[in-house]
Deep mutational scan, measured.
Amino acid sequence: DVEPGKFYKGVVTRIEKYGASINLNEQVRGLLRPRDMISLRLENLNVGDEIIVQAIDVRPEKREIDFKYIP
């Protein structure tokens, strides 16, 4: 289970102007929005990149997770 405040290694699977889709595994994925990137710009991400993200909002009833990137 993903817990708010914990850090996870994820893989960038899609990049859109509203954010990047991050997969932690086949069943768990979430969104990294541009506003939640401290020192990383969306255009510097590539599909397949592995990054460390922090879960900031977990809504299991909607199967949604928001991530934050902290270098």
Results as ranks from 00 to 15, higher is better:
residue 1 D to A: 13
residue 3 E to I: 15
residue 3 E to H: 12
residue 3 E to D: 06
residue 6 K to V: 08
residue 7 F to H: 04
residue 8 Y to R: 00
residue 8 Y to E: 00
residue 8 Y to T: 00
residue 8 Y to K: 00
residue 8 Y to W: 02
residue 9 K to P: 02
residue 11 V to T: 11
residue 11 V to Q: 05
residue 12 V to Q: 00
residue 13 T to Y: 07
residue 13 T to K: 04
residue 14 R to Q: 11
residue 14 R to P: 00
residue 14 R to Y: 07
residue 15 I to Y: 00
residue 16 E to H: 15
residue 16 E to T: 15
residue 16 E to S: 15
residue 18 Y to E: 13
residue 19 G to W: 13
residue 19 G to C: 09
residue 19 G to K: 04
residue 21 S to A: 11
residue 21 S to I: 15
residue 22 I to V: 09
residue 22 I to A: 01
residue 22 I to F: 05
residue 22 I to R: 01
residue 23 N to A: 15
residue 23 N to D: 12
residue 24 L to S: 01
residue 24 L to H: 01
residue 25 N to A: 08
residue 25 N to M: 07
residue 26 E to R: 12
residue 26 E to W: 12
residue 27 Q to H: 15
residue 27 Q to I: 12
residue 28 V to P: 01
residue 28 V to K: 03
residue 31 L to I: 13
residue 31 L to K: 05
residue 31 L to W: 13
residue 32 L to P: 00
residue 33 R to I: 06
residue 33 R to S: 10
residue 34 P to H: 07
residue 34 P to Q: 13
residue 34 P to V: 11
residue 34 P to E: 11
residue 34 P to N: 06
residue 34 P to A: 11
residue 35 R to H: 10
residue 35 R to P: 04
residue 37 M to K: 03
residue 38 I to K: 09
residue 38 I to R: 08
residue 38 I to N: 10
residue 38 I to Y: 10
residue 39 S to R: 13
residue 39 S to G: 15
residue 41 R to N: 10
residue 41 R to F: 09
residue 41 R to G: 10
residue 42 L to G: 03
residue 42 L to A: 04
residue 42 L to D: 01
residue 43 E to A: 11
residue 43 E to Q: 09
residue 43 E to W: 11
residue 43 E to T: 08
residue 44 N to W: 14
residue 46 N to D: 07
residue 47 V to L: 10
residue 47 V to I: 13
residue 50 E to S: 12
residue 50 E to I: 15
residue 50 E to F: 14
residue 50 E to D: 08
residue 51 I to A: 00
residue 52 I to E: 05
residue 52 I to R: 06
residue 52 I to V: 12
residue 53 V to F: 04
residue 53 V to I: 08
residue 54 Q to F: 13
residue 54 Q to M: 15
residue 55 A to Q: 03
residue 55 A to Y: 07
residue 55 A to H: 01
residue 55 A to P: 03
residue 56 I to N: 02
residue 56 I to Q: 05
residue 57 D to C: 13
residue 57 D to R: 15
residue 59 R to D: 10
residue 60 P to E: 08
residue 60 P to Q: 10
residue 60 P to M: 10
residue 61 E to R: 07
residue 61 E to T: 09
residue 62 K to S: 13
residue 62 K to R: 12
residue 62 K to M: 13
residue 62 K to G: 08
residue 62 K to W: 08
residue 64 E to Q: 12
residue 65 I to F: 07
residue 66 D to T: 12
residue 67 F to A: 02
residue 68 K to S: 11
residue 68 K to C: 10
residue 69 Y to Q: 07
residue 70 I to A: 10
residue 71 P to T: 07
residue 71 P to Q: 07
